[in-house]
Design a protein around this nucleic acid. Structure first.
Length: 557
DNA sequence: TTGGAGCGCGCC
DNA sequence: AGGGCGCGCTCCAA
């Protein structure tokens, strides 16, 4: 690791904080921590703060106006290193290591630093950190793992900062939208007027006055009585049926979904003081992608994005990567031909221009099919032809699938290992391999599809972490002073997309930095093979205006 | 009353 | 027989 000082923070019984800085140890009152940290940051040496869980320590610092430059998140990295195939796991064993194995992510509902019967209260950050540093150093993949560990920790800082700042949210706009589509807010437990009218229309058309359209069995029975035979009530299934009930029923399902997932209850729960503050879990999924356990940050529908509106005099800079995963595949596999197709804004078109496929749609189907393990249909057929044109790229995912089918674990470019077959979290069957041979075979094949996708999705997540980490620093340097939320700052991240809230006069520079950090992330991960990571970037007042190619950037009201 | 499973939806 | 996730709903067992 670098010469950066590592300062270890641990909780002590009696609500004290132990600070270990090299040979120097002191004990602080938690209330004194922000000024201590601010003092160390101000000296410019920017130590690496080592703590058990960023989500536990950092919010209070941010609340006090203290931003840190770097950290090491022991819980995240412990998990990572435990599973990394290139790490000698025995180096992680030692005093308290079983407790680190069991440490759960910090929950925002917990008291910030101390809770009564919390085993973690006694965990020694300095001891665990020493084991992790040694485990990385001893690995043949030390360089890549160091990068991964740093990027993941930086991601944890970004997550806490985004929750702290929040997405600017106009409740009045959201409410107006809901009222137009659903009618005014109903009393608790009731349907809004327009939704109820649609339900009535469906009941009438199916001649089932008591039907609850939210109940699948009832709905299936009512459809059957009306002569509609369907295996399920999915929208795509219903659309194939020719019956007058289909149109109002599909509309009902759409609006019911909006009402329940993004309606007034959601506003009450997640929007405070004009900010939507989702809770992120960096590396919360098996592949290393972020997950979210609050606010539905990963799925808030396009329909309500118009309520995300920049503050007066500010704008949102929205940027997403075009075809992130195929580009990552090109980079990690070293596939020269695919990398060549990836020069420029549209990788799929690049494959067409390359003469590999007749149409853009074919390119997309074939590539996605290869990454997801499609075996049949149009997608499956495309894969065969493309394998000849892009042998390294297609060979890489194919190899990962074979490894999985043999029951082996696979790893990402930076060394994250996937969960073992039957190990639990990759699917819902913890152990107990099926006794039936056919089932066992199916199980292995499913695992092969998982490992196939894991290598690409996981490496894409690593690219995104590096992107975020670099962008975070660049944004911070754009302005000389002021707390985080008074400067250009990240407010949202979703796999391959970022949103930055910034004073309008800095928007162009922010857009440049987003592009520069994307290029930097690519160079960092795939130095041997330059792959482009072009962005669709919009400067908008409202999130809903973003992402329309050709739409003029609107900077005024 | 509660918790988990399964469904269907939405995001990538 | 296409990967990852969260969430709200209904239904049913405890």
């Amino acid at each position: 690791m670098s010469s950066t000082a590592r300062v270890h923070l641990s909780r002590l019984p009696g609500e004290r904080v132990r600070v270990v800085d090299g040979d120097h140890t002191e004990v602080l009152d938690p209330a004194a921590l922000p000024s201590y940290v601010a003092g160390r940051e101000a000296h410019g040496d920017e130590p690496r703060w080592v703590w058990d869980d960023t989500a536990r320590w950092y919010p209070a610092l941010l609340e006090a106006g203290v931003r840190v430059a770097r950290c090491h998140d022991l819980r995240l990295c412990h998990r990572l290193l435990r599973r990394a195939p290139a790490v000698d796991a025995s180096l992680l064993d030692g005093e308290e290591s079983a407790l680190w194995d069991r440490l759960r992510p910090f929950e925002p509902s917990d008291p910030a630093l101390f809770s009564v019967d919390d085993a973690g209260e006694h965990l020694r950050a300095d001891l665990e950190d020493a084991r992790q540093v040694a485990a990385v150093a001893a690995s043949p993949e030390a360089v890549r793992l160091s990068l991964l560990v740093a990027a993941e920790s930086a991601g944890a800082l970004v997550a806490a900062e985004m929750t702290h700042a929040g997405v600017p949210w106009r409740v009045d706009v959201h409410d107006r939208l809901l009222t137009e589509l659903l009618g005014s807010r109903p009393p608790r437990g009731a349907r809004p007027r327009l939704l109820e009218e649609l339900a009535d229309e469906v009941r009438g058309l199916l001649d089932s006055p008591d039907l609850n359209p939210d109940s699948r069995p009832h709905l299936l029975a009512a459809l059957r009585r009306a002569g509609v035979e369907v295996p399920d009530t999915r929208r795509s299934t219903l659309r194939r049926v020719d019956h007058p009930v289909v149109e109002p029923l599909v509309r009902y399902k759409q609006l019911a979904h909006l009402f329940s997932t993004s309606g007034w209850t959601w506003i009450d729960q997640w929007v405070r003081d004009g900010r939507f503050r989702p809770v992120y879990q960096p590396a919360g999924s098996a592949t290393g992608r972020w997950s979210s356990n609050g606010g539905g940050a990963l799925s808030f529908p396009v329909q309500v994005r118009s309520a995300a509106v920049a503050d007066e005099g500010w704008v949102l800079v929205v940027a997403d990567v075009a075809q992130l995963e195929p580009r990552v595949l090109a980079g990690m596999s070293g596939d020269q031909a695919l990398a060549r197709a990836a020069r420029g804004a549209d990788l799929y078109q690049g494959m067409v221009d390359d003469g590999a496929v007749p149409t853009r749609q074919d390119a997309k189907l074939g590539l996605l099919g290869a990454m997801y393990g499609a075996t049949s249909g149009e997608s499956g057929r495309m894969v065969a032809g493309l394998t000849r044109r892009y042998p390294a790229a297609f060979g890489l995912v194919e190899g990962a699938a074979r490894s999985g089918e043999r029951g082996e674990v696979v790893r990402t470019l930076l060394g994250r290992g996937c969960p073992a077959l039957g190990g639990g979290s990759w699917d819902e069957s913890p152990d107990a391999p099926p006794d039936d041979l056919d089932d066992q075979d199916r199980h292995r094949r499913a695992y092969g599809r998982f490992t196939r996708n894991f290598v690409v999705q996981g490496t894409a997540a690593e690219w995104a972490s590096c992107w975020l980490a670099d962008l975070r620093n660049r944004l911070w340097r754009l302005v000389d002073e002021g707390p985080l939320e008074a400067r250009p700052h990240l407010v949202f991240f979703l796999h391959d997309e970022v949103v930055v809230h910034t004073p309008a006069d800095l928007a162009d520079r922010v857009a440049d930095e987003i592009g520069a950090s994307a290029a930097a992330a690519g160079a960092l991960l795939f130095r041997e093979l330059p792959v482009d990571f072009p962005l669709n970037t919009s400067i908008v007042r409202s999130y809903a205006e973003a992402g329309k190619p050709g739409a003029p950037p609107t900077v005024d009201a």
